[in-house]
């Protein structure tokens, strides 16, 4: 009896605790998502009444070369962005874990992430300017020569990725650092008594025990990168030519420049589905809900 009331009580408390988040989620995520599904089956230009068109938007989407180009560019962007960001983040985290407890260092590492996206993009736009930017001034001085960076179709997306690696690796490092500090010290002590090298300890102890954090970092940063928009809106506006017209930029263009809300919603729903499948897949292969520490 007391067991049962205890259970009810604890689930009530649990419910009470997630209630505010639940309200926010339903109001700002779930409801708009459901609305977007409905809108994706209509032809709606925002200004007049929507008309139901069935699967027309989805059919148009499959035939639209710009949609596929956008998906391809976003995927390419993820490939440019994530590996380097995660490796650098991990390196920074291990270095901080081993070498310092200084709050100042941690704050400095996290600083780029604390700046707003738009501000970071503006600063880099200035610094990377081919003619007036400071980066090219140095490249010129050391004999590498000037680069067009954001203005060149071949370099633009790479430059955007570099800006965001710089901005996000600090956050990655912080997450990894938090993960590292849950790993019991005695494992390393035992290993070093056995004569294990630093690299071997990293491979056999750190990496496996960091797996749950790794999943979190990968899932949030991959889905986040796939939705890259703000840096592009500030620096390249999808150009030059179509070289940075990633999927989210194309969706927003359709929604608010071309007033094709139904079509934009159809693409958004498709993107959400792709992200969902990726997340489930990633969590499954990496056994995200288990830890090897237990």
């Amino acid at each position: 009896m007391s067991q049962v009331t205890g259970n009810i009580r604890s689930s009530l408390i649990g419910f009470g605790l997630i209630f505010p988040a639940l309200v926010g989620f339903s109001l700002f995520y779930a409801w708009p998502a459901i609305r977007a599904i409905a809108i994706s089956f209509t032809d709606w230009n925002l200004l007049s009444e929507p008309t139901f068109v069935g699967f027309d938007n989805y059919i148009e989407m499959v035939q639209d070369g710009q949609f596929w180009n956008g998906m391809k560019l976003s995927a390419y962007y993820v490939l440019l962005n994530i590996p380097l960001q995660v490796v650098l983040g991990l390196f920074l985290a291990v270095a901080m874990d081993r070498l310092t407890r200084s709050l100042f260092v941690k704050a400095t590492v996290l600083l780029p992430y604390l700046l707003s996206n738009v501000l970071v993009a503006m600063v880099w736009l200035w610094m990377l300017d081919p003619i007036l930017g400071i980066v090219n001034f140095f490249l010129d001085a050391i004999g590498i020569g000037r680069q067009s960076f954001l203005g060149d179709p071949e370099q633009a997306l790479i430059s955007v990725a570099a800006i965001n690696i710089w901005r996000h690796m600090g956050l990655c490092a912080m997450l990894f650092l938090a993960g590292l500090q849950t790993i019991p010290r005695y494992l390393y002590e035992a290993a070093s008594l056995e004569g294990a090298s630093e690299w071997k300890m990293f491979r056999m102890i750190t990496l496996p025990l960091l797996r749950p954090v790794m999943v979190f970092v990968l899932v949030t940063s991959v889905t986040g990168s796939f939705q890259i928009f703000d840096t592009i809106a500030v620096t390249t506006m999808g150009g030059p030519m179509d070289s940075t017209r990633v999927i989210v930029y194309y969706i927003i263009q359709n929604a608010f420049s071309f007033y094709k809300m139904g079509y934009a919603s159809a693409m958004s729903m498709t993107l959400a589905l792709v992200m969902l499948i990726y997340t489930l897949f990633q969590m499954k292969i990496m056994r995200a809900s288990e830890s090897d520490l237990a």
């Binding site: 300017d129 003619i131 000037r146 203005g151 390249t236």
Partner: peptide
């Protein structure tokens, strides 16, 4: 200057 070199800050800043 080439088109790719003037996209960021552009002609006014130049």
């Amino acid at each position: 200057a080439s088109f790719q070199d003037t996209r960021s800050l552009g002609s006014d800043s130049m």
